[in-house]
Amino acid sequence: MPSSADETSARVLSLFVAINRRYARESEAAAATYELTALQAKALMATVEPVPMRTVADRLHTEPSNVTAVVDRLEERGLVERRPAPTDRRIKLVAATEAGRRAIAELRAAMPFAADPLAALDATQRATLCELLALLAEEPQS
């Protein structure tokens, strides 16, 4: 017979999956209105201000080389443009165009849960959740 702790752990993991699915469904539906993937939409939303490709990659949790194709697609659609960084011309910045900024605003409006998935929690609950998740995310000590 499973213990209460096992049942609670299973419930918590199930809730993580449900939250992830809700976020993904909402993101995918909003992105589809622009014929974008959820990843492309997330990349676009990272470019409200001009940012290096490395920053886009960090926000997508991937390597900069993997972002090139995503940015290429957004650029083909006229949603972003590449610019040299004013302080170091070797660095390419990615910036949303006017059409891209309009799309970002519409995407955000269509994704209320993704914009603030913790909206149902007050400040104390958010802080507690953050502390608990930080405990789970810690690397085990060797």
Rank of each mutant, 00 (worst) to 15 (best):
Lys42Tyr: 01
Glu131Lys: 04
Ala99Asn: 15
Ile19Cys: 14
Ala110Tyr: 01
Pro112Asp: 04
Ala24Asp: 05
Val80Pro: 02
Leu13Asp: 08
Met1Val: 14
Leu93Lys: 12
Glu139Cys: 00
Pro50Val: 08
Pro86Trp: 12
Ala41Glu: 00
Thr128Arg: 14
Thr68Pro: 00
Ala5Leu: 12
Ala69Gly: 12
Thr8Tyr: 12
Val71Ser: 05
Glu106Leu: 10
Arg108Ile: 09
Val56Tyr: 04
Glu26Ala: 01
Ala24Arg: 13
Ala99Glu: 15
Gly78Thr: 02
Ala57Ile: 01
Ala95Ile: 04
Ala103Asn: 04
Ala137Thr: 03
Val56Thr: 06
Leu13Ala: 10
Glu138Tyr: 00
Ala10Val: 06
Ala120Glu: 13
Leu136Phe: 08
Cys130Asn: 13
Ala24Lys: 05
Ala110Ile: 02
Met53Trp: 05
Ile104Ala: 03
Asn66Phe: 14
Pro52Asn: 03
Arg22Ser: 09
Glu98Thr: 13
Tyr34Pro: 00
Leu44His: 03
Ala29Met: 07
Asn66Ile: 07
Glu75Tyr: 02
Val80Tyr: 01
Ala120Arg: 12
Arg102Asn: 14
Asp88Tyr: 08
Ala18Val: 04
Thr68His: 03
Met53Phe: 05
Glu138Thr: 02
Ala32Pro: 03
Ala120His: 09
Thr55Leu: 13
Gln141Glu: 15
Leu118Thr: 07
Ser3His: 06
Ile104Glu: 00
Ile19Glu: 12
Glu138Trp: 00
Ala10Ser: 12
Glu106Met: 12
Pro86Arg: 14
Ser14Tyr: 04
Val80Leu: 00
Thr62Met: 13
Ser14His: 10
Ala119Asn: 06
Arg83Val: 10
Pro50Gln: 08
Val51His: 01
Arg126Thr: 06
Glu7Thr: 11
Cys130Lys: 14
Arg126Gln: 10
Arg11Asn: 06
Ser4Gln: 15
Ser3Gln: 07
Val12Cys: 11
Cys130Arg: 14
Glu76Lys: 15
Arg25Ile: 09
